[in-house]
Simulated scan of single mutants.
Amino acid sequence: MMINLLKEVARGKRGARDLTYEEAHQAADEILNMSATPAQIGAFFIAERIKMETVEELEAFTAVCRSQAFRSPIQEGLDCAGPYDGRKKTFIATFPTAFLLASAGLPVTLHGAASLPPKWGVTLQDLLQQIGIDAERLSQNQIIQAAESTGVLYVPAEQWCPPLKALRSIREELGMRTVLNTAEKLIDYSLSPYLVFGVYHNTVFDRMSKLVTNLKYKKALIVQGAEGSEDLFIERPTRTYLVENGEPQLHVVNPETYGLDTPLPEMTWTAELQISVAEDVLQGRGHMAFTNQVLLNGAVRLRLAGKVESVEEGLYTCKDLLDNGAPFELYRNWQAMMRSGIAQVGRSQ
């Protein structure tokens, strides 16, 4: 069956056709179950990359990824879907923002894996390893316990969706973006009603709006953020699409509107520096640019989830929380629980 589907998408620029949802679902099933050969899988990924994936194809791959993953209504909150290929040039603001939001009463789900192509940047997993947390060694129960206590869930994607791990070597050899770069971000491990999703190009806004509508999120914010992430810029406006009730609306978030626009210092980002800056922000002593970026992202996400009536109210809420130290205390508690899980694993071996 796979060879027949491959012939349809790989006929060249003029001859290739889009797959129906059912056909794409069959292709995804054969790929994620590894019943297709590595050569067929690689050829399919490249053909789709050239042809460009349709909403139906993306939805089918997302559905199959979800069917192969551990998913549970662990916490009803916000899913932050950033790029699994990491960051090279910008601050991962979504990490400290998660603890700010959780301290404001909005549970947050983060997820990721070891770095992938095409960017090969610093990932959330790299940040956790920097603070002594190897999430891939933790059981689902240990990770869930930390989330239930703090409101922050970090999912090691390749453990909770094993086919992603099985396909890693093929993706690394190809060295380019594939349909999985989108689908893996939409597995929605904790069945979150709210989504913030990063994209690199504004040309995908319409497709992604239709996709998140089909996936039935209560409300989603698609962000053309820093390095294709879900993080709003702080030095310039960010184009976003707010999707609610199937209706997408363009919203340009301008930090200048809130008196937050700040030039960014030149940084050579490593996992160590990312953690250092994140912890400084959570302790209220961070560089103004990064503190403001976390405040703005926090405020917009609180507004998205209906925790505040306006971005301005969200900013007041977030600033008060940073000033009283609640996000950093929550971060320390989460870190201790995750590290405790690692220690238990070590003792059992």
Score class of each variant (00 low, 15 high):
2 M>L: 12
6 L>I: 07
7 K>H: 10
8 E>S: 12
14 R>F: 11
16 A>Q: 05
17 R>L: 15
41 I>H: 02
43 A>N: 10
44 F>K: 02
44 F>Q: 00
45 F>N: 02
60 A>R: 00
73 P>L: 00
76 E>V: 00
79 D>R: 01
79 D>N: 12
79 D>H: 04
80 C>Q: 00
82 G>P: 00
83 P>H: 09
86 G>Q: 01
92 I>C: 10
93 A>I: 12
94 T>M: 13
102 A>L: 06
105 G>I: 07
106 L>R: 01
109 T>Q: 02
110 L>G: 03
116 L>S: 08
117 P>C: 08
118 P>G: 07
119 K>M: 12
123 T>G: 15
126 D>P: 03
129 Q>I: 05
156 P>V: 05
163 P>A: 11
170 I>V: 12
172 E>A: 06
173 E>C: 12
175 G>F: 13
177 R>Y: 15
178 T>V: 13
183 A>W: 02
183 A>L: 09
184 E>I: 08
186 L>Q: 02
193 P>T: 10
198 G>P: 05
203 T>H: 15
206 D>N: 14
208 M>L: 14
210 K>H: 10
217 Y>V: 04
224 Q>Y: 15
226 A>R: 14
227 E>R: 09
234 I>Y: 01
236 R>H: 06
238 T>E: 02
239 R>K: 12
252 V>W: 12
271 A>R: 03
272 E>V: 14
275 I>A: 05
279 E>Y: 05
279 E>L: 14
280 D>W: 07
290 F>L: 09
290 F>T: 03
290 F>A: 02
306 G>V: 09
316 Y>C: 14
322 L>F: 11
334 W>K: 00
338 M>R: 01
338 M>W: 02
338 M>C: 08
340 S>V: 05
341 G>R: 04
342 I>K: 09
347 R>K: 09
348 S>L: 09
